[in-house]
């Protein structure tokens, strides 16, 4: 790609990433949540890969890293849901943290935690899918 595209992408990609984080963190107050924010975060990485070509980063290392984050995030989600069994009424997926007042940033108990980790999981899985396709294309071209 040309220099203009590269510079514009460098300026925009960080903002898209920050917007994804905003959508995830405010998921229990405004439209959005873990799924929407995760997809937006993955979109910022895909923008970088498309603009800079495949030799911009060491893609294979990136792929193993994103796979690791994906598996860790789903593990944390399972632990959070099992933690309801250890506490209080012993129900799977129990929301045992204090609720707070609806409409504030720190409220709704466990829901922001679920949002954050599901967001990480969705973002890293979509990034892994895209990286796998790009690496496959690079390997078969050689």
């Amino acid at each position: 790609m040309t220099v203009i595209v590269k510079k514009t992408t460098q300026l925009i990609a960080g903002m898209v990433f920050l917007y994804g984080i905003y959508v995830i963190i405010h998921g229990h107050l405004t439209p959005g949540g873990g799924f929407a924010g995760g997809v937006v975060m993955a979109g910022s990485f895909i923008l970088l890969i498309l603009a800079f070509g495949s030799d911009f980063m060491h893609l294979t290392k990136e792929e193993s890293g994103s796979t690791l984050y994906e598996n860790l995030a789903i593990l944390v989600v399972v632990f959070l849901s099992v933690s309801g069994l250890l506490y209080g009424a012993r129900i799977f997926f129990l929301n045992w943290l204090p609720k707070g007042t609806a409409g504030e940033l720190v409220s709704a108990g466990m829901l922001p935690l679920y949002n954050i980790f599901v967001g990480i999981e969705v973002a890293s899985s979509i990034l892994t899918i895209f990286l796998a396709l790009v690496i496959f294309k690079e390997e078969t071209l050689e």
């Binding site: 799924f35 997809v39 969705v122 899985s125 979509i126 899918i129 796998a132 396709l133 496959f136 078969t140």
Partner: peptide
């Protein structure tokens, strides 16, 4: 529907990977 859309993306990508493998 919110969960189904993200699953749809994953299954479509899996279908496309099978297709590109068959084409090669």
């Amino acid at each position: 529907v919110l969960t189904a859309i993200v699953i749809g993306l994953a299954t479509t990508a899996m279908l496309m990977s099978v297709i590109i493998r068959l084409y090669r």
